[in-house]
Design a binder for these strands. Structure first.
Lengths: 195, 195
DNA sequence: CGCAACTAATTCACGAGTAAAACACCTGCT
DNA sequence: AGCAGGTGTTTTACTCGTGAATTAGTTGCG
């Protein structure tokens, strides 16, 4: 798996905001994606802009959330990809090889190598060579690494909770379910969907 | 951008080591985020992992969609940020200055400058200086630029439609609505939410 | 054994994005 | 007029991620 992230911040998503004349200043309170979709429909009234309303919003949400989430991590001096790597080690509960880490974190081998180098220098992870196969390495959290993850995660979740607080609880449940359904489809399908 | 990442194929077991191969071939079919959340809950049963189910899925969906969407654009030799820029010019229907483009596309000024340079060299956009204020530039699509956008957009939407096809129509509507509500909150709130 | 084919991990060269500095120009105040 | 301070855009220096090559090691097979 490669790419994605990207866009760490990647990259980001669809597009936003309206320009001059927003016709309805009152209305049901549009988000920026709705404004963009409105503009497109004015220009191409014949197109079905339905997919934009989902994909555009997912991208935009991801971009905004990403930025927001950075905060608690940054205080710990970690980037999100770094935290993902540490988190993978923590949640699986055992050592992982670099190639397993590329699968767990969906990033390229080169990226994992670099991150491991940094995290090792910072004393958050350790490596040990495999005794049988000297090509493979095994990576594990150091005590400080584990403590760091365990300290950050609750903050992270608490922060995310407040970020999502604008949506009521049933709404959150529905959203999680729908996204889960979509995700199952995407994960199962996209590999096969050869353009 | 990828918040919580998932495992390719792995029961959500908390147990270290071991890989029970997907035990229930039927079942509600877990997505990778569900697996990751399951792992976390096994390690920290006390934490409320609710936010992960939303934020993790949004990030993962964004990553997968991004990659998927690349396809139609790549055929036209455009990256998504480039298309976003062209799209902003097309949908607003008039010239935009570079700073307006940074707002429309949510990217930095430096990035816009670079993209404009490339797109100008490719003959997709033109610039003209403002007559009153010689600091500002006005950017517009060339005829080829507009034709390109108009040619790509329908393909793009058609492709996105098939990508989303796994979700039934009412589900798509609900999803769009919920994401819209979330987005309104995020856009209104995040600027103010000083960590 | 010895060599081809494969796999794990790393290195390399490069492209793209960013923040901050630089630059160019405008505006308001005295 | 003249200049302090503000704004629009570009440049600079850097980081980070990627794909492709590279290194190192293993395995299968004649």
């Amino acid at each position: 798996m490669t790419s994605m992230n990207g866009r760490p911040a990647d990259g980001n998503g669809a597009s936003p905001d309206v320009a001059r004349d927003d016709p309805s200043p009152s209305a049901p309170r549009h988000d920026t994606v709705a404004a963009v979709v409105g503009q497109w429909q004015a220009v191409h009234p014949d197109l079905d802009t339905g997919p934009m309303e989902i994909i555009g919003r997912i991208n935009r949400c991801a971009a905004l959330l990403q930025q927001a989430e950075d905060a608690p991590l940054r205080r710990a001096g970690l980037s999100r990809p770094e935290f993902d790597l540490l988190g993978a080690l923590r949640r699986t509960g055992h050592e992982l090889t670099p190639s397993e880490l590329t699968r767990e974190t969906f990033s390229s081998g080169a990226a994992v190598t670099k991150r491991l180098k940094q995290l090792t220098e910072r004393g958050l992870v350790e490596r040990r060579g495999d005794t049988r196969d000297r090509r493979v390495a095994h990576v594990r959290l150091t005590d400080t690494g584990r403590e760091l993850v365990d300290a950050i995660l609750p903050e992270q979740l608490a922060y995310e909770t407040t970020v999502l607080a604008g949506l009521d609880t049933p709404g959150q449940g529905e959203l999680a379910t729908l996204l889960g359904e979509l995700l199952v489809q995407l994960e199962g399908r996209l590999g096969v969907l050869r353009v």
